[in-house]
Design a protein around this nucleic acid. Sequence first.
DNA 1: GTCTATAACACGATAGAC
DNA 2: GTCTATCGTGTTATAGAC
Lengths: 189, 189
Amino acid sequence: MTQETRKNEIINTAAKLFKEKGYSAVTMRDLATAMGIKAASLYNHITSKQDILKAIIITIAEEFTAGMHAIMNSDASNIEKLKKIVALHINITSNNTNGMASLNNDWMHLEDQLDYYLQLRNEYETNFLSIIQRGISSLEIKANNPEIIMFSMLTTLRSLYLWIPKKEDLSANDLAHSLSEVLIEGINI
Amino acid sequence: MTQETRKNEIINTAAKLFKEKGYSAVTMRDLATAMGIKAASLYNHITSKQDILKAIIITIAEEFTAGMHAIMNSDASNIEKLKKIVALHINITSNNTNGMASLNNDWMHLEDQLDYYLQLRNEYETNFLSIIQRGISSLEIKANNPEIIMFSMLTTLRSLYLWIPKKEDLSANDLAHSLSEVLIEGINI
DNA sequence: GTCTATAACACGATAGAC
DNA sequence: GTCTATCGTGTTATAGAC
C-alpha cells in the first residue's frame, strides 16, 4: 500500500514550499510550477490545498502521539523517558524536516482537523509535563518550575527542523546524545 | 516625537493579527475591521501592508542589536553575559509579545529590508556564539558543542512570545531567574 | 494525467467626495 | 480622517478536450 506515488510527490513538494514561505503564501501555481505541471493538473491527485496541509500535519502529529504512548508505557526511569522524547523528536524531524515546519507554523490554517490537532498536541504536552513532575517527585530532576523545564525542552525540540538540515554531518545518534547532554544532564541532580 | 498615535495603533493591531494567522493570511480588510474602519482608510496612515511588517520587525531587530552590543561591551563574565541575554529577550518580548511573533515567523516576507534583517540576525548569532566559546575557553561553561548550546538557548528564548502571555502571574524578574537556572546553571561547571 | 479556458471571488491599492 | 466605488490582478477550483 502507499503506492500513490504522485500524490506523495505533491505533498512532499508542498511541504518544502510551505517551509520556505508558509501555507498562505504558497499558491497552487507555485506548487504546480515546482512539480513541472499546470495548477489544474494537481486536482487529479488531491482534492484541495487544505487536504495537502491536513495530510502533512495530521500524519506527523499522530506519529508523535504513538511515540509518546510507547514511552509512557515503557518502564524506563523518568530521565530515560526524557531522553527517549529527545530521540523521538530527532527521528521524526530527520525523516520529515519540511513537514515539521508546517506542523509548527501552519497548524492554525487547518480547518476541519484543527480541533483534532489541538487535542493531540494538548495530550502530548500533558504527558510530557507528567514525566517531568514524576521525575521531580522521585528526585531524578532538580525541583525547578516543571512548566519552565517543559517549555525550554519542547521549544528546542520543536525547532529542530531549522537546525538538522544545516548539520547533516552530525548523525541522529550523536545529535540525540549531545542534545540530551545539554537539555537533560543540566537538570539532573 | 512618536506622536503619530493612529499609525502606531494600526501597527499594534496588525502585529496582533499577524501573530494569530501570519502576515500572508491577514488581509487589509481584516486589519481595517479590527480597527473599526474601512480598508481604504488605512492608507491615510500607512503606505502599504509591507510597510507595516517592516515597522514591526526592524524596530525589534534593532532593539536586539543594541542590547547585544551593550552586553558585549560590558565587562561581565561570560556566564553573566548569557544571563543578561536571557533578561534581554524577556524584556523585549514582554514589551512586544505580538511583534515577536512576526519577527520569528514572518521575516521572510520582508521585501526591501530582508537583507538588512538577515545581516542583523547573523551578527546577533555570531556574538552569541562567541560568548559561549569564550565561556568554554575560560572554563565557565562545560565543553559541549557550542552550536548546540546556542541553538538550544536561542530557540527557547525566541519562543518566549508563545509562553509569556500565558504566565502573566510570573514577573519578568522571576522568569529571568528561573529560566536562567534551567538554561545556564545546567551548563555551568 | 495533463492541458486550455474560465468561473467566481478575494486581494492590495487608488481616486475622489465629504 | 473616513467613506464609497472601483481598478487591475491573483486566488482556488472546475469543465471539458486530448
